[in-house]
Design a binder for these strands. Structure first.
Length: 304
DNA sequence: AAATAGCTCAACCGCGTACAA
DNA sequence: GTTGTACGCGGTTGAGCTATT
């Protein structure tokens, strides 16, 4: 299917934005808010493509942008998130307040890649450079019906719900706030963290369900690229699976599992609007309709 | 001082997806 | 089910800046 151009190219400016264009865009969005980028340029009196306006606003003009150099904490968080998410810059950016996907992408390509190489780590695989070749020739794909788990997931499997809550209460996920993680004083070196990023960030992201498990989501819903909607439609499936596989007593069964904590968020408003942050109860609840609910977004088998 | 190389990052391009008609 | 439209994303480009020769 062919696509029509998003704008009339012959009547649009290209290249760097002028101060006047910036002001027009800012003023327009201040009054009317974001949205309907296609009609915005005309309405705002800009000879720009809507796409271009959106990009300019998101990457440069938005008032909540942090700007300035990345901190060490941000560096490490980006590395850890990239090891889990790959080049999903928008997902990574969503976890760094005030940073844009474009900014992080550029920063990755110009700084972090080099940093990882200097550590002897392959930036794509996050494995030691000298091990990458061997891994690529020896790695075998796990059977589809095998539950793939990270170290932390194995731990999670053996955890009772109270242990999960204990993790939450212990504030083990503070990287995003720029404060030191409780593991940082454990003598773990930066290189070790890079090799085993999940040890540092408690990234309980990969509850990989067997594709043919009777109560697991269908394989089509395992792909976060096109399955957000479907996953939202069957949110209880994961909880059922978790409860069943952990022999959770009925009185303690999970109603939801928020993985936002695994990414370093401490409060609801940092990443998602789920209610899983509530502590002191054995039942972890989650809303099932929020767009940002990472449980569904990251719900896929990982292969680390 | 001039030329060149390397680097950074804002902006562009094309594609995939969601959604409405 | 098909088509058209809008949006968002990731990859790429290139202008401008800085460092080096």
């Amino acid at each position: 299917m062919g696509r029509s151009p998003c704008c009339e190219k012959e009547h649009t400016n290209k290249g760097a934005w002028t101060k006047e264009e910036d002001e027009r865009l800012i003023n327009y969005i201040k009054i009317h808010g974001e949205g309907c980028w296609r009609s915005l340029p005309k309405a705002a009196g800009l000879l720009r493509c809507g796409k271009s306006c959106r990009l300019r606003w998101i990457n440069y003009l938005r008032p909540d942008l942090k700007r300035g150099n990345f901190t060490e904490e941000e560096d490490e968080l980006i590395i850890n998130l990239h090891s889990l998410l790959g080049n999903k810059w928008s997902l990574i950016a969503a976890r760094l307040p005030g940073r844009t996907d474009n900014e992080i992408k550029n920063y990755w390509n110009t700084h972090i890649k080099r940093k990882l190489y200097s550590r002897g780590i392959d930036p794509q695989t996050h494995r030691p450079l000298n091990a990458v070749a061997a891994v690529t020739t020896t790695t075998t794909t796990p059977p589809a019906d095998t539950i793939t788990t990270t170290t932390s997931n194995k731990k999670m499997k053996n955890n009772s719900i109270s242990n999960i809550n204990q993790d939450i209460n212990n504030n083990n996920f503070q990287l995003v706030n720029g404060t030191e993680d409780s593991n940082s004083s454990s003598g773990v070196t930066t290189d070790e963290l890079a090799f085993h990023p999940h040890n540092h960030l408690n990234l309980d992201l990969s509850i990989g369900l067997p594709s043919n498990h009777p109560i697991a989501p269908s394989s089509s819903t395992m792909n976060p690229e096109n399955s957000d909607k479907k996953l939202k439609q069957e949110p209880q499936v994961l909880y059922q699976w978790y409860n069943r596989n952990n022999n959770v007593a009925t009185s303690q069964q999970l109603q939801g599992v928020c993985l936002c904590y695994g990414l370093g968020f401490q409060s609801n408003n940092q990443a998602c609007s789920c209610k899983a942050m509530e502590t002191g109860t054995k039942t972890v609840t989650a809303t099932t309709t929020t767009d940002n609910h990472d449980l569904y977004r990251f719900y896929r088998p990982m292969s680390f």
